[in-house]
């Protein structure tokens, strides 16, 4: 086994979530059940899904992410910063400063506020949608 490129593309949490949901779905639907034939895959997929479902990416869709990326173009953020904005969905200035390096020099306070409002506008709040889901399942 040789590693051609150990650092290829970086994936967002949402993409991994979708992939793993597909993997688990395949297992139940037919072909060969992965829980019996591939125990390693089944257990890591289950644990990772459980973790990801607690994060912000649960309620995201690819259109939402696309629109968000379009809207933050003007801030000239690095790839890693945009990725973390999507993964973590920061809503306070402290969190913003943490994610964006040297944010004091690169962004004014108004820009930070604008970025937060863009995050809140485009990326859905998982706690809000969870409530809806909870009600649906309760009924």
């Amino acid at each position: 086994m040789e590693v051609v490129n150990s650092k290829g593309a970086v994936l967002s949490n949402y993409e991994v979530l979708r992939l793993l949901q597909e993997v688990c779905h395949q297992g139940t639907k037919g072909k060969r059940n992965i829980t019996q034939t591939q125990t390693h895959l089944a257990s890591i997929a289950f644990d990772t899904l459980k973790y990801l479902e607690k994060t912000q990416c649960k309620s995201q869709t690819s259109e939402v992410i696309q629109r968000f990326l379009e809207s933050v173009k003007q801030f000239k953020l690095t790839k890693a910063e945009k990725l973390q904005l999507i993964n973590l969905r920061p809503t306070t200035p402290v969190e913003m400063q943490l994610i964006i390096e040297e944010s004091e020099d690169r962004l004014t306070e108004e820009q930070v506020e604008e970025l937060i409002s863009l995050v809140e506008l485009h990326l859905p709040d998982p706690t809000a949608s969870q409530m809806v889901n909870g009600q649906v399942t309760n009924q």
Binding site: M1, E2, V3, N5, S6, L11, V16, N87
Partner: peptide
């Protein structure tokens, strides 16, 4: 936190 690694292997 997740990345893609490109690997070649004789399966």
């Amino acid at each position: 936190m997740f990345q893609l690694a490109e690997i070649r292997h004789m399966v």
